[in-house]
């Protein structure tokens, strides 16, 4: 059985996370991965500590800096939502189970909104108990750290940089029924050409021809690297094969990888 194929940037990053009852929870600010022979995604990371490094620059540092300032821990980590809780992955990710809300939301509610008349708030004396912070999990890798990394081939010649990570849902079992998303490949673009927007990956229905043509042109020469072709996922990522042996993205598509959107 082949699992569902997703692309981290296109299908997961920056999507809304929703509770089972429809209330909004957070964004997929980053994904946590378990390193090893066959790395897989273990959790959604959310909050400024996950988003800041992805934004980068002054704004990103400001985001993480302010959050660190207000967190009591020595080395605070972003909120984790284990992948085992994730149900449906569509235009939003649905999570079940008891997920604690963000601490900023709690703080604002208790100190600003509830005291205002007509907030529909609870009796100020009857505050909900503070959620117990789960013990910190040992720091694992963040998937976003792969994106943008340089890729060199077997002989050390540059291939380009990682634009997206392909994930296949055939990893180890998480919880009872869901299989983990395993890192199964990399989309490598030759230059720093910005977002991929999914247009280079083949016929995703009809689309504005001009926009598609422009983006395809920007990303011509993009290649696909399967995880088996990766020799060392360090920085730069070293491959086991010469550049010429890599599959161009377009060709990958004609070979029938259309299940990507399924």
């Amino acid at each position: 059985m082949t699992g569902r194929v997703l692309h981290a940037h296109l299908h997961l990053f920056d999507r809304q996370v929703v509770r089972a009852d429809g209330r909004l929870l957070c964004k997929v600010d980053d994904l946590e991965t378990e390193p090893g022979e066959a790395p897989y995604v273990t959790a959604i990371l959310a909050g400024p500590l996950a988003l800041g490094p992805r934004v980068g620059g002054v704004a990103g540092r400001l985001m993480t800096g302010t959050t660190r300032l207000f967190r009591p821990e020595e080395d605070p980590a972003p909120r984790r939502i284990p992948m085992a809780l994730v149900g449906e992955i569509g235009s939003a990710l649905t999570v079940g189970g008891d997920v604690p809300e963000a601490s900023l939301e709690r703080w604002v509610r208790e100190h600003l909104i509830d005291p205002l008349p007509g907030s529909g708030g609870a009796d100020p004396g009857l505050r909900e108990p503070r959620p117990v912070r789960r013990p910190e999990v040992p720091a694992r890798d963040r998937l976003s750290s792969l994106v943008g990394r340089r890729v060199v081939d077997r002989d050390g010649a540059p291939v380009g940089q990682v634009a997206d990570v392909q994930l296949t849902q055939d990893g180890p079992l998480l919880g009872e029924t869901t299989q983990a998303l395993r890192l199964s490949g990399l989309v490598v673009v030759p230059r720093h050409t910005g977002q991929l927007f999914g247009y280079e990956r083949g016929p995703g229905g009809n689309s504005p021809a001009l926009v598609r043509a422009v983006i395809r042109r920007l990303h011509r020469g993009s290649r696909f690297v399967s995880w088996e072709q990766v020799a060392d996922p360090g920085d730069p990522i070293r491959l086991t094969e010469p550049r010429a042996a890599l599959l161009p993205l377009a060709e990958l598509f004609t070979r029938g990888d259309a299940s990507a959107s399924g």
């Binding site: 209330r23 939301e105 709690r106 509610r109 907030s119 529909g120 708030g121």
Partner: peptide, 23 residues
């Protein structure tokens, strides 16, 4: 942008950050 609960379809206290922004 940040994925907060927003909107007037929930009670203000359930969208605390949203209502704080409005205020």
């Amino acid at each position: 942008y940040f994925g907060w609960q927003w909107g007037k379809y929930v009670r203000p206290r359930e969208a605390a950050r949203f209502h704080a922004t409005l205020l």
